[in-house]
Design a protein around this nucleic acid. Sequence first.
DNA 1: AAGGCATATGGGAGCGCTCCCACCTCGATG
DNA 2: CATCGAGGTGGGAGCGCTCCCATATGCCTT
Lengths: 344, 344
Amino acid sequence: MSRAAQQPPAARPTLEAVAARAGVGRGTVSRVVNGSSKVSAKARAAVEQAIAELGYVPNQAARSLVTSRTDAVALVIPESVAKLSSEPYFSDIITGVSAELADSDLQLLLVLVRDEHERERLSRYLTARRVDGVLLVSVHQDDPLPELLERLELPAVLGGRRSERETLSYVHADNAGGARAAVRHLLSRGRTAIGTVTGPLDIEGAAARLAGYRQALAEAAVPADEGLVAHGDFTERGGREGMRELLARRPGLDAVFCASDLMAAGALQALREAGRRVPQDVAVVGFDDSVVARHTEPPLTSVRQPIEETGRLMVRSLLKEIAQPGRFRRQTVLPTELVVRESS
Amino acid sequence: MSRAAQQPPAARPTLEAVAARAGVGRGTVSRVVNGSSKVSAKARAAVEQAIAELGYVPNQAARSLVTSRTDAVALVIPESVAKLSSEPYFSDIITGVSAELADSDLQLLLVLVRDEHERERLSRYLTARRVDGVLLVSVHQDDPLPELLERLELPAVLGGRRSERETLSYVHADNAGGARAAVRHLLSRGRTAIGTVTGPLDIEGAAARLAGYRQALAEAAVPADEGLVAHGDFTERGGREGMRELLARRPGLDAVFCASDLMAAGALQALREAGRRVPQDVAVVGFDDSVVARHTEPPLTSVRQPIEETGRLMVRSLLKEIAQPGRFRRQTVLPTELVVRESS
DNA sequence: AAGGCATATGGGAGCGCTCCCACCTCGATG
DNA sequence: CATCGAGGTGGGAGCGCTCCCATATGCCTT
């Protein structure tokens, strides 16, 4: 007796069981569960009571099998460049995405792609259409994923874009504008020899920040000097090395714009190491206005971009695209804002 | 013609189609796909070729319907306390979990629980058994989720534990030991009036850190002084306020152990504000050895706990529990390590 | 009073898969 | 040479649901 009781972990009731209990047909129960309006008040009440009594919960697999919807979307984060934990960008994206998704009935699948092998796995997964849509952040120029998404006609929204002629939907911050504001700010502080440490230029956002830097200088009629441009990779180490390079090439520089806060933190280290005072000798500006910006010594002036908001908007675009797959691009650009602190 | 070609997005081939093409029965194809050994080499070759030619990918929903496995696990993060982005702990857990999951065929569902309403949703989700297992971090004393997991007999592993008599499987760091090491270190530096800012004590890890602090003092025969204990909540602000409180109550204190780096960063602010030098006047030690520890001024001495490893081990335990649901607890404690920097 | 229409309802068919059982081959055995 | 079992194989049944069509019900129109 006790054996029998413990063996089957309380088989879940089915639609059919609910129908029987409520004294209606399967169709009616299905209609109630899915919120159809074409059900009489009486039938609805009976069904709802039966559902409550039985503790009925729909079986998603069965539903999915017939509707071929999965009620899940994937957030894909290529982790090739930065570690999740050191790059606050990803955490904020996740927060925004999750928050916006909470009101829908969609589940969030998190997929970190570390290497070729894992990308392969993801491709198979997407080909199997195991999700209704995909959010993809930190896209590289030659990333094969966006193309795959287009080919599969899978609803997708990018965080960032591959180029200015992006064919997929995307949401991103006004990187060029933000960089421009940063450099103008440095100019307004009387700085003239302004260097920059870029991010990986195969990410359009990084390229746009470099372009913004150049624009601002050009507007101010400051002659271009490629010796003032060092290439980083968004990491702290990259920032440190980029800064050292700049100092070696142009010892007289009096300001630097870094394409990320993490790199700016690295730059601060290199400057300290070289005995330069910040901001007296060299002013520093970062990008992202992440947690680190407030904790460096001195705290960083930085370009704030609304990352969490980016995640939210990505979801909103994706939901629309899923609702009506008439794939028309939805491309959103969010404004940035300069936050001035002691480093400039 | 062109219309017809564009309408159906290339209906995916089914098991049946593969079987027809390979000239075998459905059963054989299923056996090949699922790696059964009871298939002749010839049949296997034929099936594999057909799969390749047709680009067949199994339909997970159909499979799930009959096996009632979902091939997905959920990582549940209650976001009530800290924001994902300011708390590097979560990012590292995610990284570890995702890495360890990559080799299995399980998908990672990320569920951030912000409020009662979302917890409700999660409960329904779990009741529907939409995942094969659950990873739950940052458990509170009175969190109803662990109980639900036990009731549902859903494989689950906690990051941390509810109490010392935890009945579920868990993985966590040796919090008490880490705190003890931190305080001993301060004692060895000649500090005697050592305060602490605790985390939320309904999290066992935070309580254990406080206990470790007390143990170390007791061992050294330092009389207990409740005036040296302030309560925080793991946030920077909490650390700042806790430190202010301590300074007000015990102006003569010469060291403080904070239960998280973020709180230590806040404490540094309060100390600066009060004109105390670190470490000359007051030594500071944090916990976690997160990114912020390296960026504060001065950089923080901190207790390193292997967070990513925690995530990995949680997954390993969960996989075992899923494989053989004979629910026997697997409880792992990981060592911590003191990292000494300039703040002490 | 008969017909017409909108609204509700029941239930068959079928989604793509795994499970399992019946069957079919062969080589080994008595 | 009949018998047996092990290894392979085909395919029926059925997982729980939605879709859709046939049918029923009630009320308004002429």
